[in-house]
Amino acid sequence: MVLIQVFLVFAIIAALVAVEAPSALSSIISLGAVGFGLSIAFLWLGAPDIAITQVVVEIVTLVILIRATIARGVTEIRGNESKTLLIGSLILFGLGSAFFANYLSDFPEFGKSAMETFSNPASQFYLKFGLDKAGGPNIVNDILLDFRAFDTLGEATVLFAAILGAITLLNRKVFVDSGEEKQ
């Protein structure tokens, strides 16, 4: 439990460095450190599926971000900020933490999962019948592909739409036809 908190603190420090560092390369690498630290925390939290996915996705995110900045000659990404926005964000942070402190008491204690606190949860059903009804020992994949496969279909559709949008934005032909004839 202390180990999990250590890795979360590590992620917070890395996130602060990533937000504040002026150099593009160190900023992006610190962003990677956030993801890897959280991935180790997930491993201690009993979620190896998430840990694997997090590591792999983090690598591809880093490659895409470096492709977007350093590969086109942008080495400094200094985000100059304004005083009013700083005060505004401080007020927002205070409000948010007030709400969080207010509703924190309704949460189950850490280390006592939601499926133990509430009566008749869905997770107990999945754990109990996952092996027999879906046939896979990995309950997370049973939920993903058998009990809630329709969710996964929707997720695949969302991914398809996002990728289609990115490809349309990066495809030059679309913009050449409409943009340059105007001038």
Partner: peptide, 15 residues
């Protein structure tokens, strides 16, 4: 541990 949040998070990461 609870498998349901994990199944939701694994889709959220890829999205």
């Amino acid at each position: 541990v609870d498998p349901l949040p994990q199944a939701l998070v694994i889709t959220s990461i890829v999205i």
